[in-house]
Every structure is written in structure tokens, then in C-alpha cells.
Amino acid sequence: MKSKYIFIALIALTSLAFGASDSAIWGKDLIANIAGYDKEGSLHLGKYFTLLQSTYFKPLFFGVLVGVPAAFFIHYAVIGPMIFSHDRKKIYVFTLFNRVVHAISAISFMLIIPTGLVMMFGSFFGGGSFVRLCTEIHAISTLLFIISIVPMFFMWVRWMFIHIDDIKWLMIVGGYLNKDKKPVPAGRFNAGQKTWFWLATLGGVLMISTGTAMYFQDFKLEIIASYGISQIDLLRASAITHNALGIGILALFLVHIYMSVFAIKGAIHSMITGFKEEEEVEILHSSFYKELKEKKEI
């Protein structure tokens, strides 16, 4: 009786051992991948990845990293920040829950983005243990991002759909090209904030999934395999998507920081205290202000 169980346990263990040795990358797919590399009918992802990573990604990241702050520097020098009166009433716009979720997400971004850039410009830092540490921080701080992204999506999504104000807002670039205090067409969130929201949440999900795929590397997802996509092609596609989307996220992240810290004086306080200056709402979120007025909430 006992020997039967030992026998079953042994079989189970051997199957486990064989299961572990069956790699999704270096297993039987290896032959098909070598034979089909860049052949007609293949996805050509190996070639595309090599071209993009060797030639385009680094300069593009560098361009955004230098170009966006440079553009803001000029904006700050030529047009200057918007300064709103801090003497009028304050409007409560962000609940404690909003602020906590935003804070978690902000911390994760401040860890993920610099470490990601260290990886992209790894040769500048000489590689080795420092860059390796950054890859680990990059991966671990994703957990913070994951726990903030879900509540963030659901708490703000209802105000994030496109509105006629957004087109008007885009036409005048949010009113940032001059210092006139004319009411800017925008609801609770303006078109820029909406773009950032969608890029950070939906784009964030894509960043998380592609990043996770690259981090764990050797696994098999039946659903992907059923489309005839090999694991190595999935990884190549992940790397391309992760880096291309990363450029956009970096750009809007820099915009977000410039707006909150420099372009609109004191705007960052609304995410700490929850209150916005009345004048700021009146000018930058005029439709929202009207709505509040109609509801007699202010």
C-alpha cells in the first residue's frame, strides 16, 4: 500500500522535473525559431528589435529627456508661469482617497522612470552592480504601480471621456501660449490631463504586462501560443512595445511635473491638501467652475 504511494510520488516528481526542463525558449521551439529567423512569413521581430534598439531607442529617449525640459525652459523664460491668487476661496477637488492613490502612483513613477532611464543609458553608467540594482528596483516598484493603477482608473475614468471642450482646449494649447487670464475650456480634467490619464492607465497596463513578460522570460502562455506566436517573438514584441511606449510616458511625465511644479504656481498643493485655488479652477477648468456655480456648490 505504502509503496504504491511512493511510486506515484516518484512519477509526479519526475514529471515535475521534465516539466521544468521543458523551456519555452530553448525547448523544441528553438529549432523553428532558428530556421524561421527573418524568413518570409515570420514576424521579422528579431530584425526590427535589433534595428530599433541599436539605432533608434537611445537617441529618442535622449531627445525627449533633453528636448522636453528645454522646451519648458524656453516657455518659462518667455511666457512664464501662471500665478493665481491664493487669497480667494479654495475648492475641494481631490478626496483623501484620490490623494493617497496618486501618492502611491507618484512614488512608483519616481522610482520606475529614473531606473528605467539608467537601464536605457546603461553604458553611460558602466553597467555592473549599479545598473543591475536599478533593474531590480524597476521591477519591484512596479508592485506599487500595480496597486495604485486599478483604483486610479476607476476613481477618475468617468471624467476622462472626450468632450467638445477638449478639442477647443487643444486648439489653444490649453492657453499656455500667453499669460492672459481668459477662461480655458475644460471640465474637471482638461485634455492634457485626460491624455496623461489614458496613457498612464491603459499604457501602464501594457507596460506592466510587457515588463513582466521580460522579467520572468521563460514561461508559456497557451493563449499566446495558440496564435502561433513563439515565446521569443513575444519577448521581442514586449521589448519594442515597452521602449516605444516608454518614450511617450517619459514625455508626458515630464510635462506633468512641469505643469504641477513650475507652470502653474502652487498647483502641486492641490494633490497634497486636496484644495485648489478658486481662481485657478475658474480660469483653467472653466466648464467645471460653471457647473459648480450652477449647482451652488461654491
Binding site: N33, G46, F49, G127, T135, M214, A239
Partner: peptide, 22 residues
């Protein structure tokens, strides 16, 4: 150079032969 390598596996994505190991 293994002291410089960070184990990002980009070399594996670029390799036609699946040569890099981790």
C-alpha cells in the same frame, strides 16, 4: 564581460540562434 552585464536579455531577443543563456 559578466561584471558589466545586467542580465536584461536583449542579446537573447536579437540572437537568431537562441545562444545567450540565463
Amino acid at each position: 564581460d559578466k561584471d558589466i552585464c545586467i542580465g536584461c536579455a536583449y542579446c537573447l531577443y536579437a540572437c537568431p540562434f537562441g545562444a545567450p543563456q540565463f
